[in-house]
Write a protein that binds this DNA or RNA. Structure first.
Lengths: 341, 341
DNA sequence: GGCCGTAGTCGAAGCGCTTCGACCCTTCTA
DNA sequence: TAGAAGGGTCGAAGCGCTTCGACTACGGCC
């Protein structure tokens, strides 16, 4: 393995000079710099990560904790993870993948061992037990999601309340008066992740303002359970003309069901989803949807981490503004006497 | 930060003794061990990762390279990644997440910087440009997937040829004589990942032996493209009574289409999928399927890596035996005069 | 012309750990 | 009962890097 000392000898300078060429922390003459860089190139030198971490007290690693379960919004998680890894690389950081399994212990372990310089936590619950050790840590932490108490922490998330409001507005604008929400699986609500509730409250509030009737039903992603849920909704509110879906897995079954029931989308029933764009585009009827900006969230999280590590900027809660893309699944409310298209 | 020396002082022993308690590389009296362990506990000591890596030349990190693209079998990738991370932890390793973006350079970087002790590569192509630097590296590497040349490398993958054969056998056993394969997107075949071709050759061979007619069509995952593909298949081979689907994204659109065309599954048409169990279970008709054993693959890969790092075992190609689970989407071929159930 | 400030370089002291050789003491064996 | 054989512990030498202080040389200033 080629070391700093080898490079120094090859270039005819001292080890510290090579180090300063690498870090740029002291000025180096152009000629020396060129010579050193040529030696690095020729010898194929890569700094030893362990030695560097030991000496500088910086590992250049960011830990990313992803949820263990693979039953929910997996593509979003994956997309965030990849965005985090990619963005981190552009700032010279690598990413350590932790699973939720270890929970708070993982936070303590990383902090204690100095394995990573900072942590990014996904799938944050309202009262997450990883937060106390994270607050106590001397390393910066950024959450993707929004806990009950955010002081001392940085957070990035979609503004789900605004997303809910946006759905309500769009449907109201199309003339709909009765809306049903097909929500996440009951387990999601029980785990108190918060985002589902925030969407709902945004929806409720704006529906109130606009005079819409709103019905909410949690729902598993399976075909059977979507079928049961939709059945109950139409029983209870036969006047329902629009659905808001916040459950990736439920979109396809819902469209299939409506088709089967001879309810045309969007002519008879409108559907608006809150889901990744990819899901919306691939659906059997391209979905008018509010995007889950996975990449943007990952990128933001890394940028906050990097800023904190550079001593810039403090704690910050960033709620990304939702954007609704009009596709084909939502249209004007059908009223009695409407001419067929 | 509490160090080894702090623990040593607290326990009244030398630093090396603490180190030996931790590593178990020399025998330590029960009383000393107990005293040291109590000190570690009380002080909340965690070994510094950088120092340990520097001194021992082992980082206890395994690098995992996942594909950058998020357009294909994402849940499988995620499941593998999580299985790798979880299994690695049980052996005391952490996982570094690399994206495919850096390609061969990432392999060289990890090797040069000693950031990780070993590498696991996913989404391996037949002639992958990461393989030469991996072969040249002094650290063990394990592939998830099967390249054209495997010498000097360990590989784990599903035996896709056997999976194909298994599908053919199952359908033949149910009396089907004409089978159509809905394959991966054309891009997958062009990228030469190999697994799609292996499935096909397994299918072809067994179909030949069993006297079945086989038709293969690549297909994008979108509803429109599945619709077009199925249309062409029935035009060309009206006698087709069974589908083999190797394309996660295509299963739901296919079932929806068949329903729309009034072809009942499994009464009129049988469907067998090669996909993760989760997809099979959640489909509108639970799919008889050959599972993609994501977890098992991840686990195996880590175990091979760990064995190699321990000096045990050499290069090995492990092809996991496929298993077919009977669910509801495949049944006996309908023949003229069949009584209705 | 002496003095200061600055750019450019070097040497040496660690960072916190592992590991080798050395040492002491007890126990077993001939 | 002497010597060998281990078990248990310690001290010290690194691992490859960063960083601090010190040193040289040079130009500008009064």
């Amino acid at each position: 393995m080629v070391t700093l000392a080898d490079v120094a000898q090859h270039a005819g300078v001292s080890a510290s000079t090579v180090s300063y060429v690498l870090s740029g922390k002291r000025s180096i003459s152009a000629s020396t710099r060129a010579r050193v860089e040529r030696s690095i190139e020729q010898l194929g030198y890569h700094p030893n990560a362990g030695a560097r971490a030991l000496a500088s007290n910086r590992s250049n690693i960011i830990a990313l904790m992803v949820p263990l379960r693979t039953d929910m919004y997996v593509p979003v998680m994956m997309e965030i993870a990849i965005a985090v890894a990619t963005t981190a690389r552009t700032y010279g950081y690598d990413v350590l993948l932790l699973t939720g399994e270890e929970g708070a212990d993982a936070v303590r372990r990383i902090e204690g061992s100095a394995l990573a310089d900072a942590m990014i936590l996904m799938d944050v619950e309202l009262h997450d037990d990883r937060l106390p050790p994270l607050r106590a840590a001397r390393r910066p932490g950024v959450l993707i999601g929004l806990p009950a108490e955010t002081d001392g922490l940085s957070c990035v998330d979609l503004d789900f309340a605004a997303a809910g409001a946006l759905c309500a507005e769009h449907l109201a604008g199309l003339g709909h008066r009765e809306i049903a929400v097909i929500g996440e699986a009951p387990g999601v609500y029980e785990r108190l992740t918060g985002f589902a509730e925030r969407t709902l409250s945004g929806l409720r509030e704006r529906c109130g303002e606009l005079g819409l009737r709103l019905l909410h039903r949690p729902c598993e992603g399976s075909y059977a359970s979507v079928s049961a849920t939709v059945g109950r909704i139409f029983d209870e509110r036969p006047g329902t003309t629009a659905f808001v879906v916040q459950n990736e897995a439920a979109t396809d079954p819902l469209l299939a069901l409506l088709r089967q029931q001879r309810r045309a989308v969007p002519e008879d029933v409108s559907v608006v989803a809150i889901c990744p764009d990819q899901v919306a585009v691939q659906a059997s009827v391209p979905l008018t949807s509010v995007a889950l900006p996975a990449q943007e969230m990952g990128r933001h999280a890394v940028e906050q981490v990097v800023a904190k590590l550079a001593g810039r900027g403090g704690d910050e809660v960033v709620l990304l503004k939702p954007e609704l893309t009009v596709r084909e699944s939502a249209g004007p409310r059908a009223v009695a006497g409407d001419p067929l298209p």
